[in-house]
Computed example of a mutant assay.
Amino acid sequence: MVAIVRILARRIALLVPLMLGIVLFVFLVMRFSDSDPASAFFQGANPTPEQLHEFREQHGLNDPLPVRYIGFVGDLLHGDMGISALTRQPVVEQVTTALPLTLQLTFLGLGIAVVLSLVFGVTAAIYRDRLPDQLIRVVSLTGVAAPGFWLALLMIQYLAVGQGWFPTGGYVNPGDSLSGWLKTMTLPAFALSLPVAAQLTRIVRTAVVEELDKDYVRTAIGSGLPPVVVVGRNVLRNALINPLTVLGLRVGYLLGGAVVIETIFALPGMGKLMIEAVRNGDPAVVQGVVLTTAVGFVVVNLVIDVLHLLVNPRLRSAA
């Protein structure tokens, strides 16, 4: 336990320069883009050059880049992401309103992807080179090739419009109606998760096959242990180390894919907020959404690292 705490403290310490690098990258991209915060703030009002100059002076937009970056980091540490040029509301309020829905969609999709990949990956490994394995291989390859937005449109066409089983869009808060929340989130979560589930299925299948070929598995089964016990207690624990690594990287895909899926299903999450900010020329909101998504991706990968340490004792010893 002490080793895990020490390693975790070291990883968290490494996050500080990483976070500063992410903030610097987003800061530079936004500053060298064509978007002008002053013009965006006065959009539709025909401001005079004097008004634009006064706005830039008040908000430090004429300061040197190093000074602006230090001020930007200081504002972030105080929870200030700026003011939306469109709504005149603090960006942090808009982000905190939209973020819970995106997290719900991302982790619901992640859960579906993990369950599907474990079920089909282990099944394909146990029945390798037989009919179940061949069928799962075809389905998983199809899922890898199918983009999420295309699956979303198909689901809307056949399951929402055609059969009427699900709504075509919108969002119901789980506090108001849990069944309504499930209906509105099922199709988006499946559309988001199926490509990830297809990729993880192939990885889980390969890892389990490699583990099943090891001597200790044959010895355990030969000594009379039921195969279900051997697979569930030993094989899966050793085989899931590589899929865990890929899962951490796929979370970034889920967060990015949520932008498109939320737009298709009219979900008021971070994706819709981002699209509207880009469409309306609102750089502060775009900056806030990108930073929040990047930080979320880094935090999730830190959690995956901790899971690696818990699953793999050899990794703890090496560290």
Rank of each mutant, 00 (worst) to 15 (best):
L151K: 05
Y171V: 12
S177V: 11
P167E: 00
L187I: 09
S179M: 15
W150E: 04
G162E: 08
L159T: 02
T186H: 10
I156S: 01
Y171C: 10
Q157C: 03
L154R: 01
L159W: 00
L153S: 05
W181H: 15
V161S: 01
N173V: 11
W181K: 02
V172K: 04
T168S: 08
L153R: 07
V161F: 04
G180M: 11
L178I: 15
N173A: 14
T186M: 12
W150D: 01
Y158C: 02
L153W: 09
M185D: 05
L151G: 07
T168E: 03
G170T: 14
G170P: 01
V161W: 01
L159M: 11
L153C: 05
Y158T: 10
K183C: 13
G175E: 07
L154I: 12
M155V: 09
L178T: 15
P167L: 05
S177I: 13
L153T: 08
G170E: 06
G169T: 03
F149E: 05
Q157I: 14
G180W: 15
L151Q: 02
Q163A: 13
S179D: 04
L178E: 12
L154Y: 11
Y171K: 04
L178C: 12
P188D: 09
S179R: 10
G180Y: 07
G164T: 13
T168W: 01
Y158K: 06
T184S: 10
A152Y: 00
S177L: 05
G170M: 10
T168D: 02
L153P: 00
F166E: 07
G164S: 08
T184G: 06
T168A: 05
Y158M: 06
S177Q: 10
P188A: 05
T184W: 02
V161N: 08
V172A: 10
W165N: 08
T186Y: 01
N173D: 15
V172W: 05
Y158S: 07
S177Y: 13
G170K: 13
Q157N: 14
D176K: 11
V161P: 02
A160P: 04
S179H: 13
L182G: 10
S177M: 13
V161I: 14
P188E: 03
L159C: 14
L153A: 05
K183R: 15
P174R: 08
M185Y: 04
D176N: 12
L154M: 15
T184C: 11
G170I: 10
P174C: 10
S179P: 03
L178D: 11
L159H: 02
P174A: 09
L154T: 08
L153Y: 09
G169F: 00
A152Q: 10
N173P: 03
V172C: 06
L159I: 01
Q163G: 03
T184F: 02
T186G: 06
W181D: 07
Y171N: 06
G180C: 12
L178N: 11
G164H: 13
P188H: 04
W165M: 12
W181I: 10
L178R: 14
L178W: 11
Q163M: 13
W165L: 13
T186W: 09
G162A: 12
V161C: 02
F149A: 11
T184D: 00
P174F: 08
I156M: 03
L151I: 15
G169E: 08
L153D: 08
V172D: 00
P167I: 05
L159K: 01
S177W: 14
P174K: 09
L151R: 06
Y171S: 05
